[in-house]
Write a protein that binds this DNA or RNA. Structure first.
Length: 261
DNA sequence: CGATTATCCTGTGCGC
DNA sequence: TGCGCACAGGATAATC
């Protein structure tokens, strides 16, 4: 999504801001949010974990998190808004960037360049080198899956990718994070890079309800490459044993008992 | 400290 | 077809 935004919106000028949803703009009141964005030019496009960071020409940053069902859609301004369109940024060139979010868990806000709201986030998963991963693992006593999902430790890995990473690294999510052998840390590090890299290359995972779509409304295809996520009862692609589903902290966890140790 | 539970929402798919 | 229930890419606060 960051790449789509950068390709399409570099230099775009925001003419008007319409906020119709009550929950999508957080941390700013609507008036502050509108004032910050009206007339602004989008000059840079970053990301930290799952937060999208759109830099404005005055140095401030429009921060967005899609959470479970948020979408950014770029459409002609005249297009009729779909249901659950909560925020619209009308651009000077006749297009509109729309934030659509049925479950309203997503959020948008404008803040200063030092991003105080994101201060608790851990290192981005794609910035993690092997020694850094080893240090993080050693400092935490919980289970490996919980650590991968904890955005304060590593930012950017969610429930699909934690399961795919653990399967790729042949590690059980229930393993104590600080008791991996060096060779296992190496496999985990490789798996994080491989799974996230391939998922980005395939433009993300869109499940049956197509909540995740790109800026043009198109789904990704990484779901076709899922080895365990959502595949309870189906054969493990590596060994053929049925993939299991257990529940960890109210989240589904999919894994292979035979080839993850 | 770490694990679990409830909560914020809407939509979909399933069994009956 | 209608109803109730389980479940969904996340994050966080409260509780055990």
């Amino acid at each position: 999504m960051r790449r789509d935004l950068a390709r399409e919106l570099e230099g775009a000028v925001i003419d008007d801001v319409t906020v119709t949803g009550a929950r999508s703009v957080r941390r700013n009141d609507t008036r502050t949010f509108r004032r910050a964005l009206r007339g602004a030019t989008l000059v840079s496009f970053g990301r930290h974990g799952k937060y999208l960071l759109m830099g404005l020409d005055d140095g401030r940053v429009l921060v967005a998190h899609l959470r479970m069902s948020g979408q950014f859609l770029l459409v002609p301004s005249a297009a009729a808004p779909v249901k659950h369109t909560h925020v619209r940024l009308a651009l000077a060139d006749g297009r509109e960037l729309r934030f659509v979010d049925p479950r309203t868990f997503g959020e948008l806000f404008v803040t200063t360049a030092d991003l105080p709201e994101l201060a608790t986030l851990g290192i981005d998963a794609l910035d993690l080198d092997r020694p850094a991963l080893e240090a993080l693992l050693g400092a935490r006593r919980g289970r490996l899956k919980a650590l991968l999902l904890d955005q304060r430790v590593i930012a950017g890995i969610g429930n699909i990718y934690s399961d795919e990473i653990l399967w790729t690294a042949r590690l059980r999510g229930s393993r104590p994070a600080n008791r991996l052998r060096p060779v296992e840390v190496g496999r985990l590090h490789d798996a994080i890079a491989a799974v996230l890299g391939e998922a980005v290359a395939r433009r993300g995972s869109s499940l049956a309800d197509a909540q995740y779509v790109d800026l043009a409304g198109q789904p990704g295809s990484y779901q076709e490459a899922h080895n365990v996520y959502g595949r309870a009862g189906l054969p493990c692609p590596r060994c053929g044993r049925a993939v299991e589903r257990t529940v960890v902290a109210q989240r589904s966890h999919f894994w292979c008992r035979n080839c993850q140790r």
